[in-house]
């Protein structure tokens, strides 16, 4: 599903040359549930950006679902993202002036789904996460845990093959965190590949495979023992 081969990425400014990813190779098969662990500055966020086609890389090869992702125009990248990947972010990133249902329907809007149909799909997606009663609420009227579940409902509404979650529990208390991870596990059971970036051990322990990154390199890659 995801195949990274000797990926290099540096951020060059006039004064510094920051080599963030160093010859990093990683393969994630379809249906896996992987956690990417690392402290801040380890390069894990950069890696996630590259996986999500949100950023480019300098050398190496990245194949997503069998397709080489390289030198894509913004336009193609957007279309490809929209079809393949669902994102979940630490700060939820719901649009404040839209209701839960409208937020969930937004990716469908960008896929050209009609208003009626996407509203129905959004409600279905919300129902699945027990949020049907909150469909007409604005993000500011819901708790953090509810917001993150809306965000997951939004990531899933397009039926992506991969969910990329960037510190999905970072802004939540432990109870809500566990709830969110349970939700992600459930999604994974349906065959969707889930990649979670986190720095919390107990979150990583709830995934099936843990990849640790330090200084732009993978230092360990092991199955999580339950």
């Amino acid at each position: 599903m995801i195949e990274l081969q000797r990926i290099n990425k540096s951020y060059n400014t006039e004064t510094t040359n920051l080599h963030v990813l160093k010859d990093l190779s990683l393969t994630i098969a379809a249906g896996e549930m992987v956690s990417l662990m690392g402290s801040s500055g380890s390069g894990k966020s950069t890696l996630l950006n590259i996986l999500g086609i949100l950023d480019s890389y300098d050398s190496g090869e990245y194949h997503l679902d069998g397709r080489l992702i390289r030198d894509m125009s913004e336009h193609t990248a957007a279309l490809y993202r929209s079809k393949t990947i669902g994102f979940v972010f630490q700060s939820f990133n719901l649009i404040g002036f839209k209701t839960a249902a409208e937020n969930v329907a937004l990716p469908l809007y960008y896929q050209g789904v009609s208003f009626k149909k996407r509203h129905k799909m959004a409600l279905d997606s919300l129902e699945r996460f027990g949020l049907l009663d909150w469909a007409e609420h604005l993000p500011s009227q819901m708790s953090g845990g509810q917001n993150q579940r809306v965000a997951i409902a939004r990531a899933l509404v397009t039926k992506p093959r991969i969910i990329l979650a960037d510190e999905p529990t970072g802004a939540l208390d432990s109870e809500n965190s566990n709830d969110i991870i349970a939700v992600l596990n459930e999604i994974n059971k349906e065959g969707i590949t889930v990649v979670i970036v986190t720095h919390e051990e107990d979150i990583a322990e709830q995934t099936k495979r843990c990849v640790r990154i330090q200084d732009g390199k993978i230092i360990s890659d092991s199955a999580v023992s339950k």
Binding site: G52, L54, E74, H75, A78, L79, R81, S82, K83, F87, F89, N93, L94, I95, G96, L106, P107, Y110, Q111, R154, T158
Partner: peptide, 16 residues
Amino acid sequence: TKEIGVRKALGATPSR
């Protein structure tokens, strides 16, 4: 800015 970023992550093309 943030809203536009979210939309973009959700599949909006720059021209849209």
